[in-house]
Nucleic acid binder design. Sequence first.
DNA 1: CAGGGACCTCGTCT
DNA 2: AAGACGAGGTCCC
Length: 429
Amino acid sequence: MAQGRKLPVSLAELRIDTVLRCGQSFRWRQLDDEWFTHRHCVLKGRLVSLKQDTSHLYYNVTWPSKPPTTSSKSQSTVKTEPCRDEDDVRLLQSYFALSHSLSAMYELWTASDTNFAKRAPAFAGIRILNQDAWETLVSFICSSNNNISRISQMVHKLCLHYGPYISTVQGELFHDFPTPEALTGPKVESHLRELGFGYRAKYIAETARIITEERPLGWLDSLRNPECPALGAIKQEESDEKTATSPTYAAAQEALLGLSGVGPKVADCVCLMGLGWAEAVPVDTHVWQIAQRDYNFGKGAKTKTMNKATYDAVGLHFRKIWGPQAGWAQSVLFTANLKSFAAQASAAKLAVKEEVAKVEEGLVKVEEGLVKVEDEVIKVEDEDKAIRAVSVARAAKRKVKLEDSAVPKLEGGGETTLVRRSKRKKASG
DNA sequence: CAGGGACCTCGTCT
DNA sequence: AAGACGAGGTCCC
């Protein structure tokens, strides 16, 4: 692959080596040429190839050799390179939701949640992808009682058998994700069973049928968060005098529950990653585990099994702690909790310990197992506090203006064991 | 109406 | 080595 073009992105905002493997998207494949590792995926009819260094995202886009619109003879000349590049940049900014400032969110969550402050340093740059809603829906129908590896295989089979061919890289075939129409038909369920989908075959076939036959065109995208429009979305505010009520997260989740194989968890995954509802918190076994282990959820013996009421209570609980972007915070802790990232977690934890031991002149000092942040001294054994203190100190060092941040302040649901920046002299309040 | 079981398949663990 | 267990749950009774 050629060098391609590049987009300035810091590792604090995005780390594709983590984000593309943490169970949000299941179609990215890593291929190594003699120069570098690239990750490839078909998005919106074109093959997107990516690599990243500390300052940039390098991208290359390959369209099918035979364009979808064969009738247009002036196809190749109409689109000049700058136009096409603008289009590609828009795609990447949309897919990675780059308009959201992840570092600002991390700072808020670090300041308000000790557990987040503890885990986050090892898992920077984890953000929620803004994916196609239909793909997200089908992918997470596949996810029930399943693991990331097999979900990826299943999604790949869907593309291979039902999606349009786009390109080949190093002998690997790349197809786009199939449309609902392509997955509608009498033979789909039995075929998917043969392909090893198990009981999910029925759910996929049934949901595809409902979408194509029982819902109006564009129904799924009509559930989107208006503040987070899809890539090629038609602006609906101009269409009519707001005849349709503005969609809400609750309404979107409710609507999705009417599909086959879609319970509250899958619905929330689609809301969060496919429809732009950042407050959606998908509660799976991992998040349930995190809620109990790290957030003392269900302290009484009242909640032994997961039912809808408990499910909703967990989401509410996390929204209280993390605020309106709770789903984004959840993805960080979810990833940190994945077994496949255990090595990264422990390695980074070591690195953080070394970081704590390192002297950051002025704000943080280490003396004989003690971390000194301004006037407050913390024992290094108190890992949570020490790591948190360093985070807070760095934030202060960067002169981050939390008060002026566009992200709304969190409600005071979390523990208020904030590291007091004691005796910090505020000039004029 | 809540709650326990069944459900496909496939690694891993014992 | 055969059987249990769990993997980003949902449906059904």
